[in-house]
């Protein structure tokens, strides 16, 4: 972690805590993944680790039921409820979004680590790393679905995490992104980590038997030069523990 977090850094972890679901439903990022990352950040000398999301369901319930509040408490990290005053209009000058209120802490923190969970989604096919940035959007964010892939690429252009850790300990293979049925959950006991968010998402697609190019946002982001979609051009290290 020392490569990504320097002593004294304020680190923001952005898991997917969008839904009021227990960890076994794989609708939210696995709390053990979040907890382990928080711990590693502190080991690397981080001053503060802050964990936040703008959930769709009630934030209190999402934080508790996802198990992430407990994991954060164990690791000594702070759960942050979004404060309406801290959104600020960020100029995106993108294809779909000209500007949008985004959560200020993402830009003020020394380091940001994206910790999405891998699951299906009705519109984007899958929700992985890039889609996770919807969780820092304020405003009428459900309008974004009209041009979702382009909007995500517009966000990725300005949000540059130090690291992306895709949680595939359990993946949700149907009825996403909310889930709620254990028979839709598949256990893979895997995490995918990298600095290139497009590459992480492209690999994430393979966990569902898809290709990166099947996911609109991955394809567009790669075309825009924001990362690499073609897995054959990447050096991928697979480890069994």
């Amino acid at each position: 972690m020392k490569r990504f977090v320097a002593a004294g850094d304020v680190v923001v972890l952005k898991p997917n805590i969008g839904w009021d679901r227990a960890p076994q439903y794989a609708a939210t990022t696995n709390p053990d993944v979040v907890g382990a990352l928080a711990k590693l950040c502190y080991e690397a000398g981080a001053k503060k680790v802050r964990i936040l999301d703008n959930p769709v369901n009630d934030a209190r319930r999402c934080y508790r039921q996802s198990g992430i509040a407990d994991a954060a408490a164990t690791a000594g990290a702070e759960m942050v409820y979004m404060d309406g005053r801290k959104y600020r209009d960020v100029r995106l000058d993108g294809k779909a979004l000209k500007s949008w209120p985004l959560y200020g802490e993402i830009f003020e923190a020394d380091k940001v680590i994206n910790v999405p969970v891998a699951k299906t989604h009705g519109l984007s096919g899958l929700t992985l790393g890039m889609k996770n940035w919807m969780g820092i959007m304020g405003g009428a964010r459900f309008r974004v679905h009209q041009r979702l892939d382009e909007s995500l690429v517009d966000l990725v252009r300005v949000i540059r995490p130090a690291l992306t850790v895709l949680d595939a300990v359990r993946i949700l293979t149907a009825n996403g992104p909310t889930g709620g049925d254990l028979s839709d959950v598949k256990r893979l006991d895997t995490v995918v980590a990298g600095t290139d968010q497009v590459a992480v998402d492209s690999f994430g697609a393979t966990l569902f038997g898809m290709k990166g190019s099947d996911i609109g946002s991955v394809r567009l982001a790669a075309n825009a030069g924001l990362g690499v979609m073609d897995l054959s051009k990447l050096q991928i290290k697979k480890i069994g523990v």
Partner: peptide
């Protein structure tokens, strides 16, 4: 080193 790391294992903290 690598661009992407994919780790599989039953202990979640360990794979992270």
């Amino acid at each position: 080193g690598p661009d992407l790391v994919v780790v599989r294992g039953t202990s979640t903290p360990q794979i992270v």
